[in-house]
Design a protein around this nucleic acid. Structure first.
Length: 597
RNA sequence: GGCCCGGUAGCUCAAUUGGUUAGAGUACUGGACUGUCGAUCCAGUGGUUGCGGGUUCGAGUCCCGUCCGGGUCGCCA
């Protein structure tokens, strides 16, 4: 028998029991005639003691022990001497007096210790992920992840969903993100694509009559990485038949309440609040606003139009916008230099032309280098519109709608973080609904689907599909948590005529559409029920419930910003024979393996 | 692809606006110690300052290039 207990479960009730524990050496404290060993596994840490009276042999053996050795110890559980309990460990009231000890495996001197107080560099953590995953923080996160997925599966099972796996090797559909491609050996020159999501398959499941489908699905997108984006990620993907937006949203509301109850022991009030896309852009400049704090955008374009200040007036006259936010009581927190940094930030990151600012003085007036360009009465109206109180810092962006949205959202997030306007433990759930059906492609000026081309328009917008597509809103909904898009979904088009109209708007002929999505269009002809669904980003949900700042910490084996796995050194070159078998020639010789530097 | 930050001992960091032999904590090695829990005390090993080039009497420090890690804009239906 390897062990009778784990390193996290012994308590004072177990005193006098003979036990066997296995685990890794977290640390040792050598006192000469005896020594202490903290033995660790994923359940906890138990202190084991080699007492001075247990003989030379055991003592000598125990002195060979080093950090991260794998041990099996046998001994008896004892209550610790009074006053020597360690409240930092759950097993801190007891210790195991070692009778015999076996080194199951040695460990080379590790590049870092799982229990060391300083966090090692991320590249080192990823290279030696097996050591990193021994850290308590990673264990906690992976346990949380497992619990979240279990809760999701239980919930959907209770609601009659059926878990169906869909192919990983699929077909490239040139909409959306860049595909990861897999060459076919059997069909030289042809490629599979890894799924960006199981979107089309789950719709086909609906046609097939499996009216409630769910899957924990791995998805792949070959785009640049971010703190919250990995090339390979996991979605909780679901789809339902005979439903409209409210049904899908309600189902996810229930799931979120279940998760919050299960993981935080709190009742989440339902239904979750909803806001339209237009309102989100107007009030927050972003389709996934962080609602843990206020600092909403106010539109002052009408006031700007009255100003002699040319920057403001010309923007207003050109049909653009002067909008601002009020950072309450932040006037003292941002010096002239600090505001210069904010200016550079909005110019550089969002292409804003500039940043106009006012500080509300003790006397209640607006102070700013540009204040002299405004009559006092107008300044007063700006202040009133922005709700300015003494000590506030008011910031304005005068620019196009898009740029002002982007810049103000950027400012809002940055200021909230710097001013600590939110409790990092708090979670705020909401929905953003009624997204536009289409948006203009900047380069080609053609309409492109904002979500995907199968998204259904709102019933009341179908009439204007052809005449004014820009006003056409979709049955689309995003779940937003703390300023992150945690998930998104739509009701799909099940009407052939509408689907063809949408394709037409997107500049796709029926033949072209047939070529790209023929299998889906065919399926939709054979009795497709009204249906819709949603996909939740599980990695992000874990990140949010875990209060973490990047998605890599939620994934056992993540990739770096350059999409490398530092442990396995994937991707890597392959043998010439493998390429030949696939009928592939490299246009360029492969680059030197970058990790070798 | 652009911009920003970082790379110094195994690890985490320091090193005066370019100036002596690049330091500290920790880990590691050896020794001491009967109750520690970030054990303590003593001693020791450990460096191509990511890599390549340049400026200079002199470069960890300045310049150019490059690689790696991170953040971000573009991108991500």
């Amino acid at each position: 028998m390897y062990r009778t207990h784990t390193c996290g479960e012994l308590r004072s009730d177990d005193v006098e029991q003979t036990v066997i524990l296995c685990g890794w050496v977290d640390s040792t404290r050598d006192h000469g005639k005896g020594l202490f060993i903290d033995l660790r596994d994923r359940y906890g840490v138990t202190q084991a003691v080699v007492l001075p009276d247990r003989g030379e042999e055991l003592l000598a053996k125990s002195k060979q022990i080093r950090n991260e050795f794998v041990l099996k110890i046998e001994g008896t559980v004892h209550r610790r001497p009074a006053g020597q309990e360690n409240p930092r460990h759950q097993s801190g009231e007891i210790e195991v007096h070692i009778d015999s000890l076996e080194v199951l495996n040695r460990c080379e001197v590790p590049p870092f210790l799982p229990s060391q107080p300083e966090m090692p560099g991320e590249d080192l953590r990823l290279k030696h992920r097996y050591l990193d995953l021994r850290r308590r923080g990673m264990q906690t996160t992976l346990e949380l992840r497992s619990k979240i997925i279990k809760t999701m599966r239980d919930y959907f099972e209770e609601h009659q969903f059926i878990d169906v796996e869909t192919p990983i090797l699929g077909r490239s559909t040139p909409e959306g993100a860049r595909d990861y491609l897999v060459p076919s050996r059997v069909h030289p020159g042809s490629f599979y694509a890894l799924p960006q999501s199981p979107q089309l398959y789950k719709q086909i499941m609906m046609v097939a009559g499996y009216d409630r489908y769910v899957q924990v699905a791995r998805c792949f997108r070959d785009e640049d990485l971010r703190a919250d984006r990995q090339p390979e990620f996991t979605q909780l993907d679901m789809e339902m038949s005979f439903v409209d937006s409210d049904d899908v949203i309600g189902m996810v509301d229930g799931l979120m309440a279940r998760l919050v109850k299960q993981l935080r022991g709190v009742d989440l009030p339902l239904p979750l609040p909803r806001m339209t896309y237009d309102e989100a852009m107007r009030r927050f400049g972003h389709d996934a606003p962080d609602l843990r704090y206020g600092m909403e955008i106010e539109d002052c374009t009408d006031l700007a139009a009255e100003a002699e200040f040319r920057v403001f007036r010309s923007v207003a006259e050109a049909g653009n916008f002067v909008r601002g936010i009020n950072a309450r009581q932040a006037a003292d927190r941002y010096s002239r230099k600090g505001i210069d940094e904010l200016t550079e930030f909005v110019q550089h990151d969002f292409g804003a032309k500039g940043l106009a600012w006012f500080k509300v003085t003790e006397e209640g007036t607006l102070a700013s280098p540009i204040a002299k360009n405004f009559p006092d009465t107008l300044l007063e109206r700006f202040k009133e519109r922005m709700g300015g109180e003494p000590g506030d810092l008011i910031l304005f962006i005068a620019d196009s709608w898009d740029t002002s949205c982007r810049a103000l959202n950027g400012l809002r997030r940055r200021l909230a973080s710097e001013l600590k306007l939110y409790d990092p433990d708090e979670m705020h759930f909401s929905w953003v609904v009624e997204f536009p059906m289409f948006e203009r492609d900047e380069e080609t000026h053609r309409w492109v689907a904002m979500h995907h081309p199968f998204t259904a328009p709102r019933d009341e917008d179908i009439r204007q599909l052809k005449d004014s597509p820009e006003h056409c809103r979709a049955k689309a909904y995003d779940l937003v948590v703390n300023g992150y898009e945690a998930g998104g979904g739509t009701i799909r088009i099940h009407d052939q005529a509408i689907q063809q109209d949408v394709f037409g708007l997107l500049g796709m002929s029926p033949e072209e559409a047939q070529g790209r999505f023929g299998f889906l269009l065919d399926a939709l002809k054979y009795g497709a029920p009204p249906h819709g669904g949603i996909a939740l980003g599980i990695d992000r949900v874990v990140m949010l419930f875990g209060g973490l700042e990047n998605i890599r910490d939620c994934i056992a084996f993540p990739k770096t910003q350059r999409a490398m796995d530092l442990m396995t050194e994937a991707p890597n070159t392959v043998a010439k024979e493998q390429l030949k078998e696939l009928g592939l020639n490299l246009a360029q010789p492969p680059a030197q393996n970058p990790t070798k530097n």
